[in-house]
Design a protein around this nucleic acid. Structure first.
Lengths: 339, 339
DNA sequence: GGCATCGTGTGCACCGTTCTACGTAGAACG
DNA sequence: CGTTCTACGTAGAACGGTGCACACGATGCC
């Protein structure tokens, strides 16, 4: 039957349809669905068959009103960074075999968008949230964490009481990179960082700056951090300017391959030899770093594993755990020819 | 108040809370929310203030049960392709100023995942769906389209009756690329395509093959299509093999920059000069094509515009339109040095 | 002045689940 | 043999909104 708008309105098979078809009560069907206590094998079998033949699917919206939706929300800063898909895959590695599904929101690196997305996910009664590199402060996160279980990736907040954090040890990674450059004999090592809001010490870029400065200090070298805005198309322009300055640094530690890949590319096209004229080490070990003409040394932070751990952590929290977990993963340096 | 699980249960402000606070009926508040007919300015004002001071947000789950959720679902094949974010941005360009929000699902290039995601979005009572390059057949799409308004991007199905399609003219784009290579004097032009399922004539790769073959035929040249599987890490290996064959083609039209960027990179690292020894034109004009050492000529299909058009089309369909719209955008060749 | 009309607001059934309480039959127990 | 358990199934009230039918006072009209 057609309602005139082209939509099918008949056939709408609900839990009631199933109950009638199986000759049992609605409550019984519900019990089977949630595999709750108090159903005989015979009844379960019976109901399952009805569900199968009718092609019934429970309404997530209705479930959400009283119980769980079996859905976790994933909030992504942006999806331009090739590092993100890896994390998402890691999350799905864990979620797929579970009874939970995921739905994603894109924050577009913009805090009001992010908060509105989180609220939307709460309004849909999702069971838990995984936030990837959110722009907001720990205080804001804490407020949301009172309403819904939250696990955060790429946001350093090791003392947070109400949500879990899963991070690569960004300070350590930056130290690895910087120390490698120092060991190669470089002294004028500049860090190319991302400009971030003043109140965001939790940001990964900030942590990497700390690691860089620590390593430089230990070696008795002066550290210089140049922060570039990450606003899409202007990046190549800024990188070119950076390389045209005089004197130009001989070695660069780059907060992300997002910049480093372009940097190596632009440097080479300007006739600079890498690493002889310019040594570069990046961060994230993104797929492009492995391209032959790029061949960028980079810090690998095992994005897939980060995602998987976040999913597991969230699952355990949704299961009732209350004490916060704060996980820090050891990054590693992937050596290629760039530095 | 804390329920012992750390969640806040008090304070839960519902439409009833608002109604009491404003001293009106629940129905009145509902009317204001939906800005339905039959509310005086005074009442609206009054209710709005209560909503504001209480920080009330309507539950999307509850709304979905009877009315709309003001949410559209976006289904993405994968997010590894840098072309996808552009499309998403285009969608958001239109959705942000509207009253609608979006939530995304990631199909992971896997049909069962995609269908389950679509069903999940239907189960959440989303108001409409935008599918980006779905793997499923038109028949399957049609079945879902009876349950929910659908607009599809990157899926050629110009005769579909129940859903809208928004595409770049992939045949035309492939012809542009091929003709450019022919005009440059090449005769042995090979197309590097993506291996796709046999029943998917709707796939963009298939359309591009048709365009390629047509252009070659018109020029009286024999066409050769080499299809490579797109399964992540094996791509560079296959490309290298492709380049090591003897005789090697002098010119290549590549179905996607996903392959073309790697191809140019590997070719150059093998000592081949581009375009002298190997001319390459790609497809998508993705951000990496513009890198100096890549400098890849590519077909631009205006992803952002595709996304925006899809959102507009969906909006108009959700608004009651019934006749299908099938939009085809004219692609353009972005000339760089590679071919 | 009686009656239809209009603009506003309310009452209530309904959407599709979950969940708490309770009924009931048979087994176990003393 | 009466009583307490245990296992299974059911009834019915939530959950938080929407939307229809209707009430009610003020107007307009003949």
């Amino acid at each position: 039957m057609d309602d005139g708008g082209g939509r099918v309105t008949r056939g709408k098979v609900t839990i009631r349809t199933v109950a009638e078809h199986a000759g049992v009560s609605v409550a019984a069907v519900s019990k089977v669905l949630r595999n709750a206590y108090g159903v005989s094998d015979a009844l379960r079998q019976n109901v399952m068959e009805s569900i199968e033949t009718l092609g019934y699917r429970p309404s997530a919206a209705a479930r959400g009103m009283r119980g769980r939706t079996f859905t976790v929300g994933i909030l992504l800063v942006e999806i331009g960074n090739p590092f993100i898909p890896e994390v998402v895959e890691g999350i799905n590695d864990i979620l797929s075999p579970s009874e939970f599904k995921s739905l994603m929101g894109m924050g577009r690196s913009h805090m009001p968008v992010e908060t509105s997305l989180i609220e939307q996910m709460i309004d849909f009664h999702m069971d838990g949230l995984i936030l990837v590199a959110p722009r907001m402060s720990g205080a804001v996160l804490d407020r949301y964490a009172r309403q819904i279980p939250i696990a955060v990736i790429g946001h350093h907040e090791a003392t947070a009481a109400h949500f879990d954090t899963i991070n690569s040890d960004d300070q350590r990674g930056a130290m690895l990179a910087t120390e490698a450059l120092i060991a190669a004999g470089h002294r004028d090592i500049v860090m190319l960082s991302q400009a971030y809001a003043p109140d965001s010490s939790h940001a990964v870029a900030g942590q990497r700056e700390i690691g860089y400065r620590t390593a430089m200090q230990r070696a008795g070298l002066p550290g210089t951090v140049v922060a570039l805005p990450y606003d899409g198309d202007s990046v190549p322009h800024h990188l070119r300017q950076f390389l045209e300055q005089n004197p130009r640094p001989r070695a660069v530690f780059c907060w992300s391959d997002l910049f480093a890949v372009d940097l190596v590319n632009i440097a080479r096209s300007m006739g600079l030899r890498v690493p002889e004229d310019l040594a570069v080490i990046g961060y994230d070990n993104n797929p492009l770093a492995a391209l032959p003409l790029v061949d960028l040394s980079s810090i690998d932070q095992a994005g897939r594993r980060l995602g998987a751990l976040a999913a597991e952590t969230l699952l355990s929290r949704m299961d009732g755990r209350n004490a916060p977990h704060h996980i820090l993963l050891e990054p590693s340096l992937v050596r290629r020819t760039s530095g």
